[in-house]
Computed example of a mutant assay.
Amino acid sequence: MAKPIAGPEIERLIQLLAKLPGLGPRSARRAALHLVKRREQLLAPLSAAMGEALDKVTICSVCGNIDTFDPCTICTDGSRDQSIVIVVEDVSDLWALERAKALNAAYHVLGGVLSPLDGIGPDDLTIRQLVERVHKGGVKELILAVNATVEGQTTAHYLMDQLEGFEVRVTRLAHGVPVGGELDYLDEGTLSAAMRSRTGL
């Protein structure tokens, strides 16, 4: 076991940073060193921003987006077509579609995909809330913008079964999304093309 190279506070900072996606132990050490060297310019504002986020950030009770308001900014935006709901796996997918400015519609975040091997079933996702949202009326089209993975397609088929009998058009992303691809890694042009070329199921 390697000996600590700094005090416990810095070691804890490194350990916490290493838990972030894309940061391993080496990258976390570099990031921690950079933050500590620039305490006034970076570490203090970052600490304040994280404290504020902890106090104010919440999950939207309507769509599942992350915001400081509930309902979120997207759900309360009067310029959006609330009759079209884009169904995504995660908030990162919602943000990717928003960056692409693909469609000015509403969203629904599932919170993942069905994955029996990982023990994730329908009750672990917001599928029931989506069905209730459609049941209330006002939704004319659901766009299933799930990833083109086996789990994503399984989830899409399950949603189709759950929505059978409702008078709602169900479409999915088409051209531009490769099989096995994930929305958060696609460029904005590809996402826009896929949204424009969506097809019925």
Rank of each mutant, 00 (worst) to 15 (best):
A96C: 02
K101A: 14
T68V: 15
R30T: 04
V62C: 12
N65P: 02
T73V: 12
C60K: 03
D81Y: 02
I59M: 13
L35D: 01
V57D: 02
Q41S: 10
A31G: 02
E52I: 03
L33P: 00
I84Y: 01
C60R: 11
S47A: 10
R30N: 00
S79R: 11
L35Q: 04
I66G: 00
P45L: 10
C63K: 03
L43R: 07
E40F: 05
S92Y: 02
K56W: 03
D67G: 00
D77P: 06
K101R: 15
V91R: 01
T76D: 12
E98T: 05
E52A: 13
H34E: 13
T58P: 01
F69R: 15
E40A: 15
A49S: 12
V57R: 09
E98S: 01
E89P: 01
I74N: 00
R29T: 12
L46Y: 00
C72A: 06
D77K: 01
R38G: 09
C72H: 08
R39S: 14
V36W: 03
T58E: 11
S79P: 07
S92H: 07
V87P: 10
S92K: 11
G78N: 11
S47I: 00
A96D: 04
N65V: 07
R99H: 13
Q82K: 14
L97N: 01
E52H: 14
I86M: 15
I86G: 04
P45S: 04
A28P: 02
C72K: 14
T76R: 13
S61V: 08
I59A: 09
L94M: 12
S47Y: 10
S79D: 14
T68C: 13
D81G: 01
V87W: 10
S83K: 05
A32N: 05
G64D: 06
C63F: 13
Q82W: 06
E98G: 03
K101M: 02
V36K: 00
V88P: 07
V91I: 08
E52G: 09
R30C: 10
R99F: 00
T73G: 03
A31L: 15
